[in-house]
Design a protein around this nucleic acid. Structure first.
Lengths: 234, 234
DNA sequence: GTATTGAGTGAACAGCGTTCACTGTTAACA
DNA sequence: TGTTAACAGTGAACGCTGTTCACTCAATAC
């Protein structure tokens, strides 16, 4: 490790930190090339020594945020001391808190149209891989919950043959859970995502002034369906 | 109505049409001031005779899209000939089809952070009002379904007192439905929104290659909870 | 018939992402 | 140790963006 390599790595980290600071304070639009350069006392063209383009900088930033969020949620889950239901509850609430605290970052990760990786040029970008790692965290937790205490799940015939086929293909990632159980786990994630999206994007306060109570009730309802004894709303 | 006013109105409409064309073809970023001007054979500064700023143009475009979507879904609902359950089903599927066909427009309407209107400077922008009209369409339909055939709903104590209070405040917009029933109707909307968001933003194909089957199963499930006899997935 | 309003233009400004020729400095190799 | 090559960084420039301003020309109003 040369001294040049060291300064380079340090500079790279500092650039990303600056970009992140700008993202939090002023949204994606604030991450201008010149703005970032100004923040680290450099000129704009100098950044091209570290990133091939402005878009690449943001892509790397996304990957970093994904990993950061993943580890943060994992650490949060460790507080539950083996209680898997509580862990899922903490994960859901942790994700919501994070999203509400940094809506710009949430929108960047979860509110941007991601090109389908299966479509021909399936890009193995670091962003995609980081997103997969994040998804794996959730899949793993659901699978553990299932194997610890299986919950009742919808029969195949109410799901439809097409969906059952797709869910069966996913069984490997869920430690061999039956399609209906995977469906229920997926429903948890879908509803959680939808709730947070609605709140962050302000789509909820035209009917509910305080979404927190609604969020808790929803979490309780879907947690109950998965056989978890989550805290009931007061 | 002067001849000058006529040409002005015509020009205004043509500008919006051009902006919309650019939105569909290339996303929000494509709606450049000069690009729009080029499309209507004008120079960029000329557009300032019609819109105070670039942002205002996009805001008006959003309002137009909301209204357009609202009427389109209402017309779609009329095909159901009085069957309210079918109408809700058509609305849900219509919204999804529209979102998938024009993801850029969907992201603009539903995937952008909207400032809380209750917060101090409560803006009565045309965009907000249009969004309210869109929301009213859904509320109205849910209320009609309820009054035609009430469905079982969660008791107040599983929702929590805070949520029940908020839902009670909303009862007027739902023709006096009980809190639990409003909760169920709201759940329908929340889940629908979440599902479409996930699909449009590409957050679903890391686990399900074809979201259509999943969407149908979810719609069936929540429709069942509201006492509707929606078509079961095959 | 004259004054006024309005639409539209072209030039200009600051800022954007990006490229290029150009400096120094640092590492690698003889 | 001296030479060479790679590297970090700069300043100028290009074409683009939203926006402003002075200006022209036609249509309306009195």
């Amino acid at each position: 490790m040369n001294r040049r390599d060291e300064t380079r790595a340090a500079m790279l980290a500092e650039i990303k930190r600056a970009a992140r600071r700008l993202l939090v304070s002023g949204g994606v639009a604030a991450i201008g090339l010149r703005a970032v350069a100004r923040e680290v006392n450099l000129t704009a063209p100098a950044l091209y020594r570290y990133f091939p383009s402005h878009e690449a900088l943001i892509t790397e930033l996304i990957a970093d945020l994904y990993d950061e969020l993943t580890t943060a949620l994992m650490e949060l889950g460790c507080e539950s001391e083996g209680d898997l239901g509580a862990q899922l509850y903490l994960l859901a609430n942790g994700l919501r808190d994070w999203a509400l605290a940094q809506p710009a970052e949430f929108a960047l990760l979860f509110g941007t149209t991601i090109p389908n990786p299966d479509a021909e040029g399936h890009d193995d970008t670091p962003g995609h891989q980081a997103a997969m790692r994040f998804g794996a965290l959730f899949k793993e937790l659901v699978a553990q919950i299932w194997h610890e205490k299986p919950f009742p799940y919808p029969a195949d015939d109410v799901l439809g043959t097409k969906l059952v086929a797709q869910l069966s293909d996913e069984a490997a990632h869920f430690h061999g859970m039956p399609p209906g159980a995977i469906y229920l786990g997926l429903t948890y994630w879908t509803r959680l995502y939808g709730l947070i999206c609605m709140e962050v994007f302000g789509q909820l306060h035209w009917v509910l002034p305080d979404a927190a109570a609604y969020f808790e009730a929803q979490l309780y309802e879907i947690g109950l369906a998965m056989g978890l004894d989550c805290p009931a709303p007061e």
